[in-house]
Design a protein around this nucleic acid. Structure first.
Length: 277
DNA sequence: GCGGAATGTAGAT
DNA sequence: TCTACCTTCCGCT
């Protein structure tokens, strides 16, 4: 489930359940055992997210420690007891409240996080984000916009669903080069991501379909993606576009499955069929 | 039971 | 550009 909205939501869950509490910290699976022992019985003071990275803060003053969690593709966090205790990398609990982390790409103890944050572009979910930082990188790049949107150094927190959906919403060809994206286009995309991702945090799913294009509005049977949200193109290859009826296509771009509508956005080797509305 | 896929990244080549 | 890693789930035998 892990795009940026999920991680921000998880940070809020941690704050609500554990902030200010002394917590038990363990690693049933073992890989985080030594670090867990250091943190055990300390106070979880705060939790926050930057892009797809989750930071758990323990203690205060000079003894402050931090855990960085990155769920990667398979990682998950459960706030309830679940089977397979032996796969839990990190368990935090306060009385009956529990958080179990499984399968993360990263779970590590940190002294500082500046080195991590320096590798990340602005995060649309953070109030301190500067979208111009992202634009400066985009305008200097010949990479396709669909690759740049996935690059965490350019923009932090966007993943494969948001990249495909935001490009569709702006009728932008996935292969449009960064250099050719105008400031005005970028400002619209950024503003859209801020809104979509904030909605994602609230709803805990990714919904990108505008009211006028919902199945109800279009007189079609309702359907949602496996992840629970309603989308235009993501994982809809071979199905008709909600807007123009053209078959949604898929290819691999930036090592991930890209989905787009050739009718609304143009083909991967031809200019977009129509300008953004 | 096996194989493949999944909202991701880091490190080697 | 590739491969490795981490876990779950689903479809196929």
């Amino acid at each position: 489930m892990p795009e940026g909205h999920t991680i921000h939501r998880l940070a809020a869950e941690f704050r609500a359940r554990f902030a200010g509490r002394g917590v038990r910290v363990s690693s049933p699976q073992g890989k985080f055992g030594a670090a867990a022992a250091l943190l055990d019985r300390s106070v979880l003071t705060d939790a926050d997210a930057y892009g797809k990275h989750l930071f758990l803060h323990f203690g205060s003053g000079p003894g402050t420690r931090m855990v960085r969690v990155h769920l990667g593709l398979f990682g998950r966090l459960d706030f309830a007891r679940t089977p397979n205790d032996d796969t839990v990398r990190l368990r935090i609990n306060h009385r009956a409240r529990i958080a179990d982390l499984r399968g993360p790409t990263a779970c590590e103890l940190l002294e500082e996080r500046a080195s991590i944050l320096s590798r990340l572009g602005p995060d649309p979910l953070r109030a301190d984000a500067d979208p111009d930082r992202a634009f400066q990188r985009i305008r200097r790049s010949r990479q396709p916009i669909a690759a740049l949107l996935m690059d965490q150094k350019v923009i932090a927190g966007v993943g494969n669903v948001y990249r495909a959906e935001v490009l569709f919403r702006h009728r932008m060809s996935p292969e449009k080069s960064g250099q050719s994206v105008t400031r005005a286009e970028w400002e619209l995309i950024w503003a859209d991501l801020v809104g979509l991702m904030a909605d994602g945090v609230r709803a805990n799913r990714i919904d990108t379909v505008r009211p006028e294009h919902t199945p109800e509005a279009m007189g079609r049977p309702p359907r949602v993606d496996d992840h629970g949200g309603e989308v235009y193109v993501y994982r809809r290859a071979g199905l008709p576009c909600h807007v123009c009826g053209t078959e949604i296509r898929t290819t691999v771009l930036a090592a991930r499955n890209l989905f787009w509508c050739p009718g609304c956005q143009g083909g991967l080797s031809s200019p977009p069929a129509s300008p953004a509305r």
